[in-house]
Design a binder for these strands. Structure first.
Length: 299
DNA sequence: AGCTCTTCCTGAAAGC
DNA sequence: TGCTTTCAGGAAGAGC
């Protein structure tokens, strides 16, 4: 499923073929994952692609009108989330259409951008140029850019399970189930640990693990579990380097204990029971002497 | 604040 | 063999 490394790989691929191209025609199949399909079909044709960037797990295609006539349409962004099974590929217009392909964006070079999504958990929307800041405001820090102090601040005061925080796009944007589990293994933290109970050293280990795992996954062009492929239809290779994700019952690479799977924060979570010891039972004896702040009005 | 449950959707896998 | 059931999960919303 596409998370930050997969989306980054797709974006880098799109960046090779899309910028400079104009969109000449838009067609949709099913549209229940599109915020306003009629508006997209009306406004995209005639616009030129100025650039492709990634915002968390979103792909952001900047569109600008040709020339600078007074009546030219304003620039805006075409934003796409791949959900669980979304694929964006650039292909010659005549090529056979894969099943579950619901978006066709014909380009001025005889190719087209196609959107395929088996489960249609993806999303498409338009954001005006002036609205991009607000859109970004709904997202947390980019995990590859957040500094140690900010990371400590965001995690160190939260009573939620650390896995839930890693998955919360308003704290860090781009991490999903695979990279949450892989990061926690590398930081040797059980997914159910309460963030504010972690030491500074443990949080710094997690900060480092997140960045290392994501960077390594990008170098491998992402993880192909289920349906992920890049913009050329190629699979990634990071799934071959997973330490815990979907390795239930298999031996830990570090200590040989059997990898376990449990539901944490509502998600299937994979961990090594020996390298990532479970927290004390919630509500059990607390021996820490940290005063409990109720309103959180400090700092 | 943070937890659980529900919804969306399809295909793979398990159960009978 | 062939049917039915269960499950996976990103994100948002409801309700506690």
């Amino acid at each position: 499923m596409p998370e930050l490394p997969e989306v980054e790989t797709v974006v880098r691929g799109l960046r090779v073929s899309l910028p400079g191209r104009a969109i000449v025609e838009v067609r949709f199949g099913k549209t229940d994952f599109v915020d306003n399909p009629a508006e997209i079909a009306e406004r995209l044709p005639g616009m030129r692609i100025a650039g492709v960037t990634r915002l968390g797990k979103f792909i952001c295609i900047a569109l600008a009108a040709e020339g600078a006539r007074a009546a030219a349409p304003s620039p805006f962004y075409f934003i796409i989330h791949l959900g669980m099974t979304g694929q964006l590929t650039v292909i010659r217009s005549g090529e056979p259409v894969a099943a579950h392909t619901h978006g066709f964006f014909a380009l001025d070079d005889g190719r087209e951008l196609r959107y395929t999504d088996i489960r249609r958990f993806g999303r498409m929307l338009l954001v005006p140029e002036a609205g991009l800041a607000e859109f970004k405001g709904h997202l947390g820090h980019e995990p590859l850019e957040i500094g140690a102090e900010e990371f400590l601040r965001d995690f160190g005061s939260r009573r939620a399970r650390v896995k839930a925080l890693l998955l919360d796009q308003k704290i860090l944007c781009g991490i999903g189930n695979i990279y949450a589990d892989e990061s926690l293994f590398r930081a040797r933290l059980h997914p159910a640990r309460i963030a504010e109970n972690l030491t500074r050293k443990q949080l710094l280990a997690l900060h480092r693990a997140v960045r290392e795992v994501l960077a390594a996954a990008i170098r491998c062009r992402g993880s192909s579990v289920s349906d992920y492929v890049d913009s050329e239809g190629k699979r990634g290779e990071f799934q071959l380097r997973h330490r815990v994700y979907q390795r239930t019952g298999k031996p830990c690479f570090r200590c040989k204990a059997k990898i376990r799977r449990a539901i944490v924060a509502g998600r299937g979570s994979h961990f090594c029971p020996r390298c990532q010891p479970a927290p004390r039972k919630r509500g059990g004896a607390r021996k820490d002497l940290k005063p409990r702040m109720h309103a959180g009005a400090d700092g």
